[in-house]
């Protein structure tokens, strides 16, 4: 090509001894085309072989058997736990079986926000077609002794009418808080933020 006289830096290519750019040979190979020069030129043929070798090696590297050491997960999780960001404690007012507030013998009970959130998420997950996402647990200011839950949900497409699913989640959260934490649910705000597709057969 005449452009070659202007210098290779303009084409930013790697010329073979026959004058063709390696880049162009690769491009032809990618597109599965070849011209008369390419068919007979030994330099072009060598370049094509090189690329084929590289492509095979690339596949071998995609199937890289190098595994992270087995203890890396533990190392990471230990470091993550050491970071803190633990949920603070919630001052709770426990209730008895009739729902009446009880003053515990040992004074007020503090439990971790984190632990309550886990119970609430788990309760939502038990509803088929529902996944809990974010979950905020606070003391309900408008309802003394109750916890306020704000949760976002993802629903499976075709799992049923959204408002029915949401009401089922609300009921399960209420009974989980009562049965497993021993505290009453106040306001439970549920927001659907995503839908995931039905799993294949």
């Amino acid at each position: 090509m005449a452009v070659n006289e202007l210098g290779d830096h303009l084409r930013q290519g790697h010329p073979l001894p026959c004058g063709r750019l390696v880049e162009d040979v690769f491009d032809d190979l990618d597109r599965g085309r070849i011209d008369d020069h390419g068919r007979t030129c030994v330099h072009c043929a060598t370049a094509r072989r090189s690329l084929t070798t590289l492509m095979e090696a690339t596949r071998a590297l995609v199937d890289d058997p190098a595994e992270p050491p087995p203890n890396l997960l533990d190392r990471i999780m230990q470091a993550v736990r050491a970071e803190g960001r633990r949920g603070e404690a919630l001052p709770l007012v426990p209730i008895d079986d009739t729902g009446a507030a009880v003053v515990p013998d040992l004074g007020p009970v503090d439990i971790s926000r984190q632990a309550v959130a886990a119970v609430v998420r788990y309760a939502a997950d038990t509803v088929d077609g529902v996944r809990a996402r974010s979950c905020r647990v606070t003391v309900d200011d408008a309802d003394v002794g109750a916890l306020r839950i704000e949760m976002t949900l993802s629903l499976r497409y075709g799992a049923g009418p959204a408002n029915e699913l949401v009401e089922t989640v609300r009921a399960r959260i209420g009974s989980a808080l009562h049965g497993q934490v021993g505290v009453r649910a106040g306001a439970v705000d549920l927001e659907i933020v995503d839908v995931w597709p039905e799993e294949g057969p």
Binding site: A89, P94, P104, L106, V109, D110, I111, A115, V116, V119, G179, Q180, V181, G182, V183
Partner: peptide, 8 residues
């Protein structure tokens, strides 16, 4: 805390 309600 130590006083964890059952099931939690």
């Amino acid at each position: 805390s130590g006083a964890v309600p059952a099931g939690l």
